[in-house]
Design a protein around this nucleic acid. Structure first.
Lengths: 232, 232
DNA sequence: GACCAGAAGTGGTCTGAGGACTTACGCTTC
DNA sequence: GAAGCGTAAGTCCTCAGACCACTTCTGGTC
């Protein structure tokens, strides 16, 4: 077995076996090298691999630790790769978002939370009064994010958030011939979702959310991608 | 900015900007080091990070390439991290699987595919006639996997597959007091799903799949995890 | 044209060294 | 006695150079 793979398997085994739980600290690199029988280079490459997946975390000067192994955090790491997926793949992902977000929106509607409803209404007021593409994207993410969070499953919130972030790279809301029509349709969709939540109608909420996202899918199909912004 | 992070950002930028598309080959490591201004160690750690995420792929003796950037393949990489998530997190993930698989099962029921139905029936015949835990797990995965694939969205198939694989580490089907009752309930659930598909009733299929997975969630809640098998 | 051997190209691994950051300890000071 | 501070130890981060292993291309041979 290759050295890096051996190190990778060894590190995973230490976690999988329960030897190291969430938050636990690994031995220092030289000791791990000795234990696993690989050089520091190979060990470090293995550590980076698991770090990219959100499984372990290195802190400069302190040590290497097992992460919290929280599903939402691990799914959040996916944004690094999802952001590089081309348009055709994004459409497959949007179907996932549509299904999950319809579910979460229904769950949010089943709750009785006037505070949430007030906050959502305020976000929509802002959203309807702006025409700036970046601000629209930000407020849209906040609206859907609040609803998903109210749905009660952080994993669903993280997953839909990652997909929404990817879709946002394609600018639907750019000044052009269809801008007004698209914006109005989008605004109406948001109001329909909020209305279903306010009236505590889960089925209507699921339908409204599903229709809203399906509309986004249609718009995206007709779009060509814009150049990526510089990565941080 | 730290060296490895700089290399990471540079590599991602090369893909995000469109300079390198799916399948494209990166320059040799020494050239990349020069271009990005980092040492070979740092570059290699960055390459490993993106490799773990399924974004790029190194082939010994050949070169480093951009992967196909296929969403299903990228999601498949998640199994490396999902397999380490503790039980509480798995329950959150199972809700995702329940929702997505209900959707996919409905889509499969909407299709007219006698060949699929025959294959599913054969799998269930095998499944009902065995009591071996490993074989049960394997046949169960094949049954649900075939249905998801028929649903038509490879991303959904990959995502549900990853979650199903994680759940399989907890052995529900172990010889014990409740074994017969659990097995019979599970078998009945599978037959209900197949019946809905055979009669081409998407709504019934979604309900049956949802109920079946919800049942699994209930069993898992009552379980304590078993020691992990050795990782490959 | 098919096959084979060698050479060139490329990623994989190891070693050794020094730098940068965090943490803990012991001292000083009030 | 408690707070502040500087030093020292511990740990990860980066670099450089060398050699190994695998793949691919090239040229010649049959």
């Amino acid at each position: 077995m290759a050295a890096t793979d051996k190190a990778l398997a060894g590190l995973r085994q230490m976690i999988a076996s329960g030897e190291l739980g969430p938050g636990a600290k690994f031995p220092p690199e030289p000791e791990l090298c000795d234990h696993l029988g690989v050089s520091r280079s190979s060990l470090r490459e293995a550590v980076r691999s698991l770090g990219a997946l959100g499984v372990i975390e290195s802190r400069h000067g302190s040590g290497t630790y097992v992460s919290a192994l929280d599903p939402a955090a691990i799914i959040g790491r996916f944004s690094l790769s999802v952001e590089l997926i081309p348009l055709e793949g994004v459409l497959e992902l949007l179907e996932v978002r549509r299904v999950l977000e319809a579910h979460a929106t229904a769950a949010a509607a089943a709750r009785q939370d006037p505070e949430l409803e007030a906050k959502l209404s305020a976000v929509l007021d802002q959203l309807e009064s702006t025409t700036d593409a970046t601000e629209i994207q930000h407020l849209d993410a906040e609206f859907h994010g609040l609803i998903c969070a109210a749905g009660g499953n952080p994993t669903v919130t993280a997953l839909t958030g990652v997909i929404r972030g990817r879709g946002g790279h394609y600018r639907i809301f750019e000044p052009g011939a269809d801008f007004d029509a698209i914006k109005q349709t989008s605004d109406r969709g948001h109001r329909a979702i909020l209305a279903a939540i306010t009236t505590r109608d889960p089925a209507a909420a699921a339908t409204a959310a599903s229709a809203h996202i399906a509309q986004t899918e249609l718009w995206l199909r007709a779009l060509r991608p814009v150049p990526q912004p510089a990565l941080p």
